[in-house]
Design a protein around this nucleic acid. Structure first.
Lengths: 340, 340
DNA sequence: CTTGACATCCGAAACGTTTTGGATTATAAT
DNA sequence: ATTATAATCCAAAACGTTTCGGATGTCAAG
């Protein structure tokens, strides 16, 4: 229905070549004809066929983002923020964003093969990097452009942005220690995620520095969902010996912790202090508002995207590895340790 | 880097035509050669170039979803659920999902023109339909396949799924009325959204049926964010005369209501009852857990997507207009009206 | 031996764009 | 008047796939 270059050319009695070059702004077409072409294209409502462009130019002008989803649905605000950031930045720079979801595992690398080898996208964004991440190995091996949110323990060189999770968790521990807490539990994320182990390591280090003892049974592993935080907390508060504070590896689990404790009649901020990690928008509206380690997810998403686009445009990055320092946002979910 | 049909053909001493037809499963290629081709393609890691396929077949095998975002970031879990549902269903049926964001307004229709006329996508998903929605007008006019989440007040025939917002809000009012509430405030969404006015209409009707008076100054319009719910609530609780219950047009605003009231020391569920709409995953983990009208966003997203794909495959839909009945999930944010 | 019917394969065109390597014309320099 | 130079245009090839309309060979029936 919309016209093709051929139609415009016919109408103006020009060749397809000239119309194409006129629209692309080449200097070898007369200014007067260029204006005629632009005007006609405008009037006729010309929109280029991207399939043809892509075939010819061998680039898709699109970036891919494969969400590593566990279970069919993901409702983690972490991902919304990411998609918003990536989508806005990509759109601003004229790139399409192609979204897919695939659970980690067998079919995952096949999905990456599809997206990359089919020339659907020119580059990819990777998030939630894992230990010995097969996705990173694949992309580096095939020399496919990508930028990650999260570093790697592989000895591979690739661009990424990451937040210092060791330091962030240390802030949480120090905050609680200053409030007099000595019995602190830690709800970790899945062990295969790189940031999980870093944050847990930060916890261990900071506890040692504060001369606090970490109790083995107070370190539990969840899956980053509210329900997991909820379930683990019931388990945690089951025995006679309670921690007075809980640090969760992300806000969603922290919300689960608060809900579970409150269901048991425990006052958050007085009887039990809770700290999260992420500072998702809802953290400020939780009850009580959640003390948490802030990382600028939206901004990281735009950073990662614009880095990728720089790479795609053939530029070299000034900084290939960016580490951001998080900061602690103190709200009302933490308070002085209860006296015994 | 990956091989093209030409390479496979050369290796097997066949024509490109035969290789193509073999892989596509045409019956006019011998079973034995078909197997040779499939095997070679497998070994050589063949992945078709989608740009070429799209150009030739005049279809993109992709669907588009343009998020009508207000402000640069959207962190509404409503959209995450939608993206998850659309993405999973599209992926399952072999379709790509192309995501863009554009604020309602001038540039919006231009974006739709781009997506549709450029053959980037074969069909579109529309959400948050508006009064006299220009997007619907554009798509219908250009005869472009789409399915909407939300009906229309235009006299246009197009397929959609919607949730009966009048009925849903009625449930909320009746629930509060049974609890003895007589002074109920309503926080609406933007007036140009179709569901906003329907829900507000449901509120008005139900209030009348219950012989309750709606106070003009207790009907406020927000923008569906927590912060808007927060701000409006401070305004609402400012005067000497308070409502005993608030119904919000969505959960996010309801969360803002609770946070604002609690900051004033008001007990939610006792002194003030709050009802939301959506039943986002966090509603159950709010404090107190939020009473809300449940609509199955994820399932609607998959329904809408599979309807669109049916249309794209040339099938006619059994039901072009599906209305779903929501139900009320009672949690602890509502309770008996306080005595005077 | 001829004919027809199948089974199997393939050349060439087409999709819509960009790019390459001229071709043509006008202009300026000699 | 001739030649070099610049300005402007365009035909054809190419990107990788699918499809159309045969071409070729085989085999059974007549």
């Amino acid at each position: 229905m919309p016209p093709r270059l051929k139609e415009i050319a016919a109408r103006l009695d020009l060749s397809v070549t000239t119309v194409s070059r006129a629209l692309a702004g080449y200097p070898d077409v007369a200014e007067k004809t260029r204006q005629r072409v632009v005007q006609a294209a405008q009037e006729m409502g010309y929109v280029p066929n991207v399939a043809a462009q892509r075939l010819q130019q061998k680039r898709a002008n699109a970036i891919g983002f494969i969400i590593p989803t566990f279970g069919p649905r993901f409702s983690d605000p972490f991902f919304s923020e990411l998609i918003a950031g990536i989508g806005n930045e990509a759109g601003r720079q004229g790139y399409d964003l192609l979204i897919s979801t695939v659970p980690p595992g067998e079919r995952e690398i096949e999905m990456y093969r599809q997206q990359t080898f089919s020339h659907r996208v020119d580059g990819m964004i990777l998030v939630r990097t894992r230990h010995q991440d097969p996705r990173i190995a694949f992309l580096v091996e095939n020399n496919f452009p990508f930028v990650a949110f999260g570093g790697s323990d592989q000895n591979l060189d690739f661009p990424f942005v990451d937040v210092d999770g060791v330091y962030g968790t240390r802030l949480a521990v120090e905050h609680l220690a200053h409030l007099g807490h000595r019995h602190i539990a830690y709800l970790s994320g899945p062990d295969n995620l790189l940031f999980s182990t870093l944050r847990r390591q930060g916890f261990a280090e900071a506890m040692a520095d504060q001369d606090l003892i970490v109790e083995k049974q107070w370190i539990l592993e969840g899956d980053l969902t509210e329900s997991s935080g909820h379930a683990l907390t019931k388990q945690l508060l089951n025995g006679t010996d309670h921690p007075t504070a809980v640090i969760a590896a992300n806000d969603l689990m922290a919300m689960g912790v608060m809900a579970a404790a409150q269901a048991l009649g425990i006052q958050i901020g007085q009887e039990l202090s809770v700290v999260g990690f992420d500072d998702i928008p809802l953290a400020a509206y939780a009850n009580p508002p959640l003390t948490t380690v802030h990382q600028p997810i939206y901004r990281i998403a735009t950073m990662v995207t614009s880095m990728l686009i720089q790479v795609l445009n053939g530029h070299t990055l000034a900084e290939r590895k960016k580490w951001l320092q998080p900061n602690l946002v103190v709200r009302q979910s933490t308070g002085p340790a209860p006296a015994f």
